[in-house]
Design a protein around this nucleic acid. Structure first.
Lengths: 209, 209
DNA sequence: GTCTATAATCGGATAGAC
DNA sequence: GTCTATCCGATTATAGAC
């Protein structure tokens, strides 16, 4: 039985609350209440609420930048792409509070803006790299213009799917299964795959439903 | 020279401010300041800030429900679809404050949630109707599973494209041109069109860039 | 209809004891 | 490290004069 440090408990609980009711609706009092500690104690560990947000963002950023480092020249299989998407959605979903109120959050902690934009850009690049690999392997056929549009679409979907999903189907706020998002992104790619690959991808995508 | 009623000036200015800096960042004081009226005066016309939001939402809702009423049995041309998308993005963009902080706004004015969801649903249905029409005319070929996925994707994009666009390319906040969104949505549909229609749609989509 | 002044509340943050 | 008590600032909203 390892005792978790208060500092970490604060981070974990904050993340949980942010995700479930939205960062702007979470007061420092609510956090300390949930943890059964005093507000003063919270401020002993973090000098402001913004610091909590920032540290959570940093964790997210690290995960993402790490995940998005796709080797330029690798031969990527459909399975690997599926796995990649799964991981991606997993991360995004774990820090979905950032996406849920994106404009608001980024406007109040504006140092985060450029950093977020960098992640976004890297995301698009990663998708492009994957598509290029598919193309080299003869699994995909697509014009440059379509490719650009597709990669942006994939990036958009990776960002907003979770929020959109929770919104349109009003299942509980606590658990968001990343599956449907992976499914949806697979289906964006399918039209541009070769015939055999299409079937393979369709089968695979169904596992995520 | 018609004098605009104060009540309407409040609504217009609020909308403008909401869109440009985000609804949560707009205080009643900021609104009255911008209008060179007193805060008291504002509260004479609206009993709360929420009432302003609600009335703006109502305008939006009306526009949308009206726009989204697509006749089931009409034969829709690509041009008409383009026009429809243009109108759609125009409306969404004019009330983009709702989308920019969707979760936040809907959580604080929770009577709006179900109404928003209704719009969302109608949007998906509209897209489906259009696609069905395309199919009847032999312009489109698509499996049921793909169709479902496509329509949801179109709905998602219609919602979030503007926010996503302003975010990733940091052009000024005031003007959002709906063009790129229409382009993007066209490209979602293109893979499922017949060969001649594909070319036509590609040409058309470029006008929106 | 519009103003000024002010109340009421709330959330973030600090001081100082234990 | 943690608590209690408290302050400060911002924001919504109201009262009452003009």
């Amino acid at each position: 039985m390892t005792k978790i440090k208060t500092r970490d408990r604060i981070l974990n609980t904050s993340l949980m609350l942010f995700n479930s009711v939205g960062e702007p609706n979470v007061t420092t009092l609510l956090i300390s209440d949930e943890l059964d500690i005093s507000p003063g104690n919270l401020y002993y560990h973090f000098k402001s609420k913004g610091d909590i947000v920032e540290e959570l963002f940093e964790r997210f950023e690290e995960e993402m930048l790490d995940l998005l480092t796709v080797p330029e020249d690798a031969e990527i299989s459909l399975d690997q792409k599926g796995f990649f998407l799964h991981m991606l959605f997993e991360s995004v979903s774990r820090y979905r509070f950032i996406y849920q109120d994106l404009v608001n959050v980024l406007s109040r902690y504006n140092q985060l803006q450029t950093r977020f934009r960098r992640i976004l850009k890297k995301k698009t690049t990663a998708f492009r790299t994957i598509c290029e690999s598919f193309r080299r392997q003869g699994m995909m056929e697509i014009e440059p213009e379509q490719l650009q549009s597709l990669c942006e679409q994939l990036t958009l979907t990776a960002c907003y799917w979770s929020s959109f999903d929770t919104l349109s189907h009003l299942h509980d706020r606590e658990s968001v299964d990343p599956g449907k998002g992976v499914y949806q992104m697979m289906h964006l790619v399918i039209p541009f795959l070769g015939i055999e690959e299409q079937e393979e991808a369709k089968l695979m995508s169904r596992d995520y439903l």
